[in-house]
Design a protein around this nucleic acid. Structure first.
Lengths: 253, 253
DNA sequence: CGCACATTTGACGAGAATCAACTGCAGTGG
DNA sequence: CCACTGCAGTTGATTCTCGTCAAATGTGCG
């Protein structure tokens, strides 16, 4: 379950997203390579950190998806945010901070321990400026995503939620080089997507079909293709019209 | 609109919430008093910080409510979080961070500029340990609230959302000494509550009436009274039953 | 009083959840 | 090889929660 292996390419790819935001100097680069002991690998379903536990073992995601999961007493689940390759996981700048959700692997996941790396970088920020700046930028983005996710769940219709999620994931995959012809990998089942979007499995299914018919988003197993970026962008920003059956606008009454 | 006045009691009350989390030493206490220049006062509707603007003028809320507002293109509004007396507003540990929502005064608001205070404290954390720890704790709490708000909007029913909000606000008011006999001040209109909860005004109204009938929450103009804390707690944690009309449970079919 | 604004009520419909069944498909083992 | 299993996706029928529209009823205030 927790087998370790060494993989230099993987180390690099885990930092691809990071490098896009903050290109590292040669010095920092060597430091990164030296600090990372090995790659860990776990199956889908594995819990990287339990809700309430101290976030004292931060990692970098090399591949796979991690969901920040919260449960209600009767079993309803909400996935508050998603992490993909390149993201720091189970990390918080505030020393002593605790996990505000369970970090659950939604797919098989490879990661590298980053405690030592991050610890040293934060102790000597002057020596690793890009590294620290990159961490700040990525965490700031995750913070912004929480805001967006409240709006998504609180105000958006199913189509809008899916368009919003698709665009966010597309952009994030694009900058780590995982997009192909306006498409990105989507390993999540519709059930899990429901937990992310705050919709039932069935409704996710029907909405995806509708978007497929309208040729805005083509969700095939394992991959989402953004066929009409303009339309998706407009939908995700909430410019109402949508498919709103033109309601007869009675000329007189 | 932006008149200033001096008010020592107000200064203290603004720190009441703070002190509960991190009691300050005499030294820090004097520092706080010396650093705070004056109290600002603005009307409801005033925008303390616009979305996207740099968060370089943090404040402490002395009285009044501030909402973190996001709008969709067609006008739908979501209030992502609420700030009350004692909370730092328009503040972020990440230098150069920008506002992820508009900070809008939902009531008349009094505040004090905290840029100098916070700046100095963060530069010399060893000298002001409780102050810095308090800031971390409050920001961590705000961060946790974002998680909770995603779950609230994504998974909860109207009653559950209101119970959840009521308990959160009760706890926060309690520790700054603004609760009276299981009640706390509620200056927000039902329309604004709708934007906070992701519900329509009408549905907020009807749900509040129902909770009043069920004697769990008594929402009177200007004040919310938590009549049945147990029931509210259970509702807010999502243990389904609710009022779920006992669905006949057919003995046979 | 008249005005603006918040709360309340009723009628109706839209969006989404629920329940249940059925399909397709990969893996498993006889 | 093929029944058997389990899981993701799909479909239809029905119900429920909540939003929308519109109008009525307060309520404080110049």
């Amino acid at each position: 379950m927790n087998m370790f292996l060494s993989d230099d390419n993987a180390k690099r790819s885990a930092f691809a997203g990071f490098r896009h935001i903050a290109p590292l100097s040669g010095h920092e680069d060597q430091f990164v390579d030296a600090c990372i002991p090995c790659i860990g690998s776990v199956n889908a379903g594995h819990e990287i950190a339990r809700i309430g536990s101290p976030l004292n073992r931060p990692k970098f995601l090399v591949s796979g998806w991690v969901g920040l999961v919260r449960q209600l007493d009767d079993g309803r689940r909400q996935i508050v945010d998603l992490h993909i390759a390149g993201d720091p996981v189970a990390f918080d700048f505030r020393l002593g901070a605790r996990a505000k959700a369970s970090y659950v692997c939604l797919t098989p996941v490879r990661y590298m321990e980053a405690g030592e790396l991050i610890g040293k970088a934060l102790e000597h920020p002057d020596e690793f400026p890009s590294l620290v700046a990159g961490l700040h930028a990525i965490e700031d983005e995750a913070h912004a995503r929480l805001f967006a996710n409240v709006v998504r769940a609180g105000q958006m219709f199913a189509q809008e939620r899916i368009a919003h999620l698709a665009l966010d994931l597309y952009r994030r995959h694009d900058r780590i080089g995982l997009c192909l012809a306006h498409s990105f990998p989507m390993p999540l089942s519709q059930e899990i997507l429901g937990d992310v979007l705050g919709l039932s499995t069935v409704h996710v299914n029907r909405t995806l079909q509708q978007m497929r018919r309208e040729s805005s988003l083509k969700a095939t197993p394992g991959r989402w293709q953004l066929s009409d970026m303009e339309s998706l962008t407009e939908t995700a920003s909430g410019s109402r019209p949508r498919h709103r059956a033109q309601a007869a606008t009675p000329a007189y009454s």
